[in-house]
Amino acid sequence: MVSWEIIGAWIAAFIVIWIYSFAFRDNVFYKLAEHIFVGTAAGYSIALAIDSLNRVAIKSLITQPTVSWHYIIPIILGMLMFFKYSRKYYWLARYGVAINVAVGAALAVRTIPMANIIRQIQAALTPLWGSDPIKLVNNWLMFLITVGGLTYFLFTIFPPKPAPGRTSAIYTLYRALYLIGIYGMMVGFGALFANTIVTRVGFVISIYLIYLQPYIIATIIGVILAAIGILIEVRRRSK
């Protein structure tokens, strides 16, 4: 007896192979898998939206109407958003967007100064004198790269470039910090890029282990179908 789980696992193996087939060439099975992804993703996000609407607003309105009466206002504002389809009353949707924009920006503005600026400055203030030479080198490196990066992102004030044959201490310092900043960021971007590659490789391996390896026949059939799809595409293009 074939269970729904087995059918699902076979479909999952097919879909994964068909999506990977795009790395070789666009084909009809990739298009199908892509549309399956878009359809399920949209359906899933709507379901989650209904779920959060139910949990936050509707349940509270049913169980505690005296406390949660004000949830009627965002429900009305949310419904007003459907007016975006109207040519005449599209502006009514702006009231709901206004609340969302304001709350989102306020939450960001009040937490970011501490997390992104003050905490970063505090972490950058490390002792530049001491007895431990390794710690000292690390601290100096961190200080110079941080200040160098900030110099690189300074777009408002530039020290004037000295005339040919003349030198300027401020300009030399600016250039030196600027270069240290760029080199530091190159190290950072290299690390970021490498970590991204390693993460993606990890994803591919885990997908192979979860969806493909346990259902090898489904994987082979999926590969054959993808190959047929690619051949059809090649023939269609060559005509």
């Binding site: 939206a49 936050v56 206002i73 965002p74 504002l77 949310g78 958003m81 709901g96 969302n100």
Partner: peptide, 9 residues
Amino acid sequence: DWAVIITSF
């Protein structure tokens, strides 16, 4: 919560 409700819509 208002923002969550409007986001759902």
